[in-house]
């Protein structure tokens, strides 16, 4: 971790390589025993607030359907965990959905990193008049999340080439080709029920580009000049110098994108109707054991909770494992 990767003053302090200093310098040296007890009490209450619900979910996932609906409630751990996991995994075909979620999450990670990296490279290291307009074009996309433009985005996913078709129709090129060469232009690319459809619209934002631009701006001019003097062209510079230098950046972006890709809900819900492309997050929707829909049957909360644990665990593992990089990345992207 070099100082060059520190992008904002805010980011700087969370990234102190804590590992090298096994103990951080303690807070203030002062004797406040009562306040310390109160601090621990507040923090433990906070942890209970955050972990408590997860305990209840876990406890429910270990119980039988009778236990989970028992009166008075049984909040203890029982022994049906693997049974419930087994039922959730097989009756819901979680294997296919896990693979799909993984493909989508990794697709978003890789796609976003590659696109963000090369776009930022094109904006920062070349001197052309369009660099600021292009930057703003990309930057504006930060403003409107997918959810607020969901209806027309869906229409685009049904035919990703429709924007071009419409433009050709407007400009009269369709008509021209039709009259002159009698070629009928009919562009179509249906992205519903495909990995491309799941992944591409999620890449169409500026989060990563912005993070990479911030980082590239900290690369000293001397490095560029030295590379040029040694005869390296732009692509060589990107491959041999920028990419290795941006490893920590990449780790941060990868974590954020993995979580966001895995947790996508509304978009896959809309565009996927074929079960072989369904993802785990959407499956949770049909696991809701509504008393009104079970037709008087006992709601299987135990299986529903086992399934939601299955969905939660992978991104939690990623975030905890990548904590150091992820926190820094999060703080510098959302600026």
């Amino acid at each position: 971790m070099t100082d060059a990767t520190l992008t904002t003053p805010l980011a700087a302090d969370t990234t102190q390589p804590t590992r090298r200093k096994p103990r951080r310098t303690p807070g203030m040296v002062e004797n406040t025993p009562w306040l310390n007890i109160a601090t621990h009490a507040i923090l433990i209450m906070g942890l209970l607030f955050l972990l408590g619900p997860m305990y209840l979910v876990f406890a429910a996932s270990t119980q039988t359907v009778q236990e989970v609906n028992a009166i008075p409630p049984n909040l203890g751990i029982s022994d049906q965990f693997w049974v419930n996991m087994h039922e959730a995994w097989f009756t819901r075909d979680f294997q296919t959905k896990f693979i799909n979620s993984f493909i989508v999450a990794m697709g978003v990670v890789v796609g976003k990193i590659v696109i963000a990296c090369i776009t930022a490279f094109g904006i920062v290291f070349f001197d052309h008049r369009l660099r600021m307009p292009i930057f703003w074009c990309v930057f504006i996309t930060l403003m409107l999340p997918l959810e607020v433009r969901i209806v027309p985005t869906y229409a685009v996913a049904a035919n990703a080439l429709s924007p071009f078709q419409t433009l050709l129709n407007w400009t009269g090129i369709t008509w021209l080709l039709d009259t002159i060469a009698s070629v009928e232009v009919n562009l179509e690319w249906n992205m519903l029920n495909s990995y491309t459809g799941l992944i591409l619209p999620l890449i169409a934002t500026a989060t990563g580009t912005f993070l990479y631009r911030q980082f590239f701006l900290t690369i000293p001019d001397e490095l560029v000049e030295a590379a040029k003097m040694d005869g390296a062209g732009p692509l060589r510079f990107l491959k041999d110098i920028l990419v290795p230098l941006s490893a920590t950046n990449m780790a941060a972006l990868a974590t954020i994108m993995f979580v966001s890709g895995w947790n996508q809900f509304l978009w896959p819900l809309l565009i996927i109707t074929d079960p072989s492309y369904e993802v785990v997050a959407v499956e949770l929707r049909s696991l809701v054991p509504n008393v009104n829909t079970t037709g008087g049957g006992i709601p299987k909360w135990n299986v529903a909770m086992a399934a939601s644990l299955l969905v939660m665990v992978p991104p939690i593992l990623v975030v905890v494992a990548m904590q150091r990089w992820f926190v820094r990345g999060l703080i510098s992207t959302d600026k």
Binding site: I115, A116, I118, T119, F121, G122, I123, V124, F125, F126, D127, H128, I134, C137, V138, T141, L144, R149, T153, V156, A160, P163, L200, P201, I203, A204, T205, A206, T209, L217, D221, E222, V224, E225, K228, G233, P234, L235, F237
Partner: peptide, 26 residues
């Protein structure tokens, strides 16, 4: 920045994918 690369065609190729995607999906 003062030091830049000269080849603007490469720059165009670099920004093209993202511009295309945000045009179509944003």
């Amino acid at each position: 920045r003062r030091a830049y690369f000269k080849n603007n065609w490469i720059a165009a190729l670099m920004v093209a994918p993202q511009l295309l995607i945000i045009f179509v999906f944003f």
